[in-house]
Amino acid sequence: MIGPIISSGIVSPAWDNIFAVILGMGFGFALESSGFSSSRKIIGTFFGYDFVVVKVFFTAAIVASVGLLYLSYFGLVDYSQLYIQPTFLTSAIVGGIIMGIGFAMGGFCPGTSLAAIGVGRMDGLVFFGGMFIGVFAFSESFSLFENMFYSGSQGPKMINDVFGISPELFTFFLVLAAVGMFFGAAWVQKKVKKVEY
């Protein structure tokens, strides 16, 4: 079967939501069992006592990137049908900075706060509730940010095109960088004083 199997019409769109629940469960399980329900474990990355975020995040990124390219190579996925986030440079950077501050304050990102709610962490629930306020505030003040929201538009641009190399070569460098980071993280973790949490 050529993926994505829903937009290619092999299974009916009614299955879409069932798959959504199943994939969400896999997502939630992976996050929680790796320790992403604990804000103190997540934030450990920034103080060097626990690099679980770096390890899980980049392992997932390289597994998915390499996997997608292999699926595409063997004709199992139509890469042109995948949803590629359009690039809006200014808003991506400014939004990323705001999220970074929120990350350091709250210790969660939206996905991990959901995992925290799933195991009963009240700080996760409060964080998630805060997001509603943030989204509402943005929507209400949209006219102030409208220009920024649409500026720097580059369409669904791929990062390998920025460097002028093939997707495969870029992914190869990505894997090298990730592996280097994993060994670096292990080295730093040995040097840093252990924090109990």
């Binding site: 390289i62 495969e168 992914t171 894997v175 090298l176 990730a178």
Partner: peptide
């Protein structure tokens, strides 16, 4: 992992 990526 590196070998897999190199394969691509």
């Amino acid at each position: 992992m590196i070998v897999l990526a190199l394969g691509l």
